[in-house]
């Protein structure tokens, strides 16, 4: 994940990935920094092919953004994607990659699911993680 692509071959393509939301742009670049082959944060998170190691990389990067983001928007979006990455690991790998309590995770997933500004595919991911966490709690998802 930490082997950079040779940027001289694709000089400044990342500039065109910037959209009208500076915070979403930041998320795009973070995801690409961790997985240069990633096409978009949404695709990476909803795909069952994204390896658990990559999800852990995303989670750490989003956690850092949540805590150290330059703006409130950055921090807020960092928190949402932090939760979504944990949701992705639960849904696609049946693994928890967070030591957050079940209650905290359920609350985070429920909040994402009810936020209509978030892409529907991501809200669906959060919902599925919420259900899995609730129903699989007795079987205890491995950390």
């Amino acid at each position: 994940m930490n082997t950079p692509e040779k940027t001289s071959a694709l000089p400044l393509h990342w500039i065109l990935q910037s959209d009208h939301s500076p915070s979403h742009t930041l998320i795009n670049w973070l995801v690409q920094e961790i997985d240069p082959k990633a096409t978009s944060p949404i695709d990476s998170l909803i795909s069952s092919d994204t390896p658990i190691a990559t999800l852990i990389g995303y989670k750490n990067a989003f956690k850092h953004l949540r805590l150290e983001g330059e703006t409130l928007d950055d921090q807020s979006l960092g928190a949402i994607y932090y939760g979504l990455t944990i949701a992705s690991s639960i849904v696609h790998h049946h693994r928890r990659i967070s030591r957050q309590s079940n209650r905290a995770l359920e609350e985070a997933f429920r909040k994402i699911w009810s936020d209509e500004t978030i892409d529907l595919r991501l809200r669906d991911l959060a919902w599925r993680a919420f259900v899995l966490l609730r129903t699989a709690i007795k079987d205890s998802l491995p950390y």
């Binding site: 930490n2 930041l26 973070l30 920094e33 990389g57 750490n60 850092h64 953004l65």
Partner: peptide, 11 residues
């Protein structure tokens, strides 16, 4: 953490 480097680059 590598997350620091990733965030620095994005920022």
């Amino acid at each position: 953490s590598s997350a620091q480097v990733a965030n620095t680059l994005a920022r």
